[in-house]
């Protein structure tokens, strides 16, 4: 699923209603929505790579670059949040499951 897209020199992102919106309208809740997609294994998280000339709007460039780099890093280990939270109380669960 395409989540970050570059079109006509502008950055776009996927909204929770399925539409693509300009990236300068993006809020923290939108980021959290994309993060949930990126960390779930249901669908692949896709984004357009960003080159020097691709995004012309400077504000869009700043936001897109930052999002692109953070999500790229995350996709290398997309299960990290789930793994970290599942590791808590692991011993307790094992102990009480046994008896």
């Amino acid at each position: 699923m395409k989540c970050l897209k570059i079109e006509n020199g502008k950055g776009l992102f996927l909204r929770d209603n399925g539409s693509m919106e300009q990236i300068d309208k993006m809020t923290k809740d939108d980021v959290l929505y994309l993060l949930n997609i990126a960390t779930s294994s249901d669908e692949p998280f896709e984004m357009d790579p960003i080159g020097e000339q691709d995004v012309l709007n400077e504000a869009h460039k700043i936001i897109y670059r930052s999002l692109y780099s953070k999500f790229s890093e995350l996709l290398e280990n997309r299960t990290r949040f789930a793994e970290e939270s599942a590791s808590t109380y692991k011993d307790a669960i094992e102990k009480y499951q046994a008896n």
Binding site: K28, V31, A59, I62, R65, L74, F81, E84, S85
Partner: peptide, 26 residues
């Protein structure tokens, strides 16, 4: 329940981190 809340906390921290990075740039 704890684990699901914990996952959300970790995600929010990640978003906050990204937010401050973007804000600094802007």
């Amino acid at each position: 329940q704890y684990q699901s809340e914990r996952e959300l906390v970790l995600k929010k921290l990640w978003v906050n981190d990204l937010l401050s990075d973007v804000k600094r740039g802007l």
